[in-house]
């Protein structure tokens, strides 16, 4: 199929960017979206023009590196699909496709379609873990975890940290990402001893990175490639409120 592409080009974080139009011919419908961009880049190299920089790595929907807004949708039109697993059979000959980077205050553009998501790492560093020294913990089966709780924790843990939730949110909020990790650990018995510390620290880190607030648009849930749901945000809000109250009385754990 032949396509008209409008691609965001930006030299680096200091300069401003713009859309550039490209015509691309002979794309197989079995190709993935990123393979389509590979073809574009090979053609640009042939012509001596600098190829489009974009983040990608595993190309099987799990590393969370790919990050494109396609025709205004983070990760494109397919439900529960990262860009790398989006295939060109969902497009038709002659389509115009607009490709942009994640756009959010906390994710500055590095080049073309690549953004800096370091803020996510810093949220995890603030409290997205269980303090468990490498050594000899108790036997794994001594800790019984009811299946529904383990399953719920796994639902949250499926987050790949891609940042689509932030890109889709009109407020640029990172509530879905933060609540997924916070809830996973707060649900599990292993996570109880530092539950309050975790909730307070992760929310504080999220705020200080410049992410916006949640006003229940729900766009994040709609674009999440791993179908993380809004109820984790509700859970984090509850955990956070409880921690704040206990903190006020000097009883936070």
């Amino acid at each position: 199929m032949d396509l008209h592409l409008r691609v965001w080009r930006q030299k680096n974080s200091e300069t401003s960017g713009k859309f550039v139009n490209y015509e691309l011919k002979g794309v197989s419908e079995d190709s993935s979206f990123l393979e389509m961009l590979d073809i574009l880049n090979e053609q640009l190299v042939e012509k001596g023009e600098e190829p489009v920089a974009f983040d990608h790595d595993c190309r099987e929907g799990i590393c969370g590196m790919c990050s494109l807004v396609i025709n205004g949708m983070a990760h494109g039109p397919e439900r529960a699909t990262t860009v790398c697993q989006l295939h060109m059979r969902h497009y038709s000959d002659g389509d115009t496709i607009t490709i942009e980077p994640w756009r959010a205050k906390a994710f500055p553009v590095v080049k073309d379609l690549i953004v800096d998501r370091g803020a996510f790492d810093r949220i995890i560093q603030a409290g997205g873990f269980i303090t468990a020294r490498t050594g000899s913990p108790q036997d794994a089966n001594e800790l019984l975890i009811p299946k529904p709780i383990a399953d719920k924790a796994m639902d949250a843990a499926a987050c790949i940290g891609c940042g689509a939730c932030v890109a889709a949110c009109p407020n640029g909020a990172a509530m879905l990402f933060t609540s997924a990790k916070c809830s996973q650990l707060n649900l599990l018995p292993q996570g109880q001893p530092e539950k309050d510390r975790r909730s307070l620290a992760m929310v504080a880190a999220m705020d200080s990175e410049g992410f916006g607030n949640c006003t229940n648009y729900g766009e994040c849930q709609a674009v999440c490639p791993k179908e993380i749901t809004l109820d984790f945000i509700a859970k984090m809000n509850r955990d956070y409120a409880g921690a704040r109250i206990r903190h006020f009385f000097g009883k936070a754990i």
């Binding site: 269980i130 468990a132 490498t134 913990p137 036997d139 794994a140 796994m154 599990l188 292993q190 996570g191």
Partner: peptide
């Protein structure tokens, strides 16, 4: 044992 202690949801 270690990974369960860290919160891996097996």
């Amino acid at each position: 044992d270690q990974m369960v202690a860290q919160g891996v949801p097996f």
